[in-house]
């Protein structure tokens, strides 16, 4: 089984461009229905399928995603 991972998203800096959503191989991310203080819908984790591959963080133009993976 793949290792488990987790992402922490800085929602105040997220601009909701959705590039991370299309980059995630496990469809872990989605756009929130809420907006942040700038009025952007932000990326949120919607299931526990994250493997910590960091693809989302690597394509994030605003560097808002921090990735963790169990050792």
């Amino acid at each position: 089984m793949a290792k488990r991972g987790d992402v922490v998203i800085d929602i105040e800096k997220c601009k909701g461009c959705e590039v991370c959503i299309s980059a995630c191989p496990h469809e872990v991310l989605s756009l929130s229905s809420e907006v942040n203080s700038k009025g952007y819908h932000y990326a949120v984790k919607v299931n526990s399928g994250c493997t910590g591959c960091a693809n989302c963080a690597i394509v994030c133009p605003d560097a808002v995603i921090t990735v963790y993976r169990e050792k």
């Binding site: 488990r4 991972g5 987790d6 922490v8 800096k13 526990s48 994250c50 910590g52 960091a54 963080a57 690597i58 133009p61 605003d62 560097a63 808002v64 995603i65 921090t66 990735v67 963790y68 993976r69 169990e70 050792k71």
Partner: peptide, 23 residues
């Protein structure tokens, strides 16, 4: 998933060679 978020499991974070300013 909560217990994964600790420094020893970190695989990717924003580099310190960038400032914290919002782009």
């Amino acid at each position: 998933s909560e217990n994964l978020v600790n420094p020893e499991n970190l695989v990717y974070k924003k580099t310190d060679a960038m400032t914290d300013r919002v782009l």
